[in-house]
Amino acid sequence: MHELSIVMSIIDIAKQQADRACATIIDEIELDIGTLSGIEMDSFEFAWKQAVRGSVLEGAVRKINTIEAKARCLDCDAVFSIHHYFDPCPVCGEHLLDILSGKELKVKSLVVS
């Protein structure tokens, strides 16, 4: 379950950033998670509950921006939403795609005090 190590990294980043801002409390954390990021949300929830206990993020409100995956067809240039890497181009049916978004996995912002 790599979601646990992902949550641990998020806690590390949050702590580092809070220290840098000389803050003691993290009120909110905003995350960008793309639908092709490799994160399974149920596992993520489970890991989050376990890992934030006793950490700087214990009382923080979490906001997740789900980033939709988009691709450009390298054959016909169409731009469209995808759910999987193997989705074909809806215009020409080809699979040569350039992934434009959806792989995001980042800490976007914090609200600290």
């Binding site: 980043i13 801002a21 800490v107 976007k108 914090l110 600290v112 005090s113």
Partner: peptide, 16 residues
């Protein structure tokens, strides 16, 4: 003691 917004924009896998 007031609330501050910190723009982080850091990839979670950055360290790796």
């Amino acid at each position: 003691s007031s609330k501050t917004i910190v723009d982080v924009e850091q990839d979670v896998l950055h360290q790796n």
